[in-house]
């Protein structure tokens, strides 16, 4: 898409030929390689410091395993076939819970954001439920849904519901009234008004809400797997701590950080596209 704003409305051709604002040389922070290298600086420093501290025995390995030990723990898990199993089951739980929670969040967000009655009926209740800490649900969910997948996925649904619900409801309430009035004046109402104006207007916010929800889903995954799981990254975390395998604990933490960041980046790309497309 070509960006051109011209203040010579009736003579577009010469205006279009005008080059974009003169570039005063590309700054370092705009270069792609610098963005990647710059983002890696701190992790590399942390890794090096960690390596030095543990290798030189400044902190005993019983409290801080070395990076090599964590690496070996990873290889060990892969060789036993547990690594992919754990990652897969955790990802599956997150994705199912996120999909259901985000859909419900969209639905309730739309009801509350578009309808005054929906707002009056639902907002107080949902607001109170949101105030309950995630871990408080866990005993109840285990009691009702037992230790199977349902209890874990339900917790993730709860975790990913609220960011989407909150953001969508508030964004729909704040869609430019003038735009809505103009669209109504041109005969749009009901679902056509929603599809033509309200929905497109909240797409960037909605995707930002989805991004928050996905991050929240990973947080709630660990909470769900801390209790009563036999597989998954949260299980790896508790099990290894209980059995004194601190290297695996570190591995689990690092895996959660890396996978969480990766999934966030994926939605981030989508978000940038949506902001360009819909604003």
């Amino acid at each position: 898409m070509t960006q051109q704003t011209t203040d010579a409305p009736s003579r577009p051709a010469p205006a279009a030929a005008r080059p974009a604002a003169p570039r005063l040389g590309r700054r370092l922070v705009d270069r792609k390689w610098f963005v990647i290298v710059g983002g890696a600086i701190i992790p590399v420093i942390v890794l090096l410091t960690w390596h030095l501290v543990s290798e030189n025995g400044i902190v005993p390995t019983s409290q801080l395993p070395s990076p090599t030990m964590v690496w070996l723990a990873l290889i060990d898990l892969i060789e036993r076939g547990l690594f992919w199993q754990y990652v897969a089951i955790s990802t599956q739980r997150v994705l199912i819970g996120f999909a259901i929670g985000a859909t419900l969040g969209l639905l309730f967000g739309a009801i509350v954001g578009l309808s005054k009655l929906g707002d009056i009926l639902l907002t107080p209740t949902l607001g109170a439920l949101r105030a309950v800490p995630s871990l408080a649900w866990l005993p109840l969910l285990i009691l009702w849904l037992k230790l199977g997948e349902e209890s874990k996925i339900t917790l993730i649904i709860i975790g990913s519901f609220f960011p989407v619900y909150t953001v969508v409801a508030s964004a729909l309430r704040h869609v430019d009234r003038q735009l809505i009035e103009a669209a109504r004046a041109f005969g749009l109402h009901g679902t056509r008004l929603f599809g033509t104006v309200q929905l497109p207007a909240v797409i960037p916010e909605t995707i930002a809400g989805l991004r928050l929800a996905l991050a929240q889903a990973w947080l709630f995954l660990v909470a769900a797997e801390l209790l009563g799981a036999s597989m998954g990254l949260g299980f790896l975390l508790t099990d290894s701590t209980n059995t004194g395998r601190l290297d695996r604990t570190f591995l689990a933490i690092i895996l959660l950080a890396v996978i969480g960041k990766l999934s966030d980046s994926l939605i981030g790309v989508f978000e940038r596209w949506a902001v360009r497309r819909w604003t």
Partner: peptide, 27 residues
Amino acid sequence: YDARCAVGFQEPRLLPWRSVAANIALG
């Protein structure tokens, strides 16, 4: 919102995600 009228507002009030042509088609 009488269908026999068309309104030109003080502000353009165009849908930002639609092209000029698509905005006109809204009318």
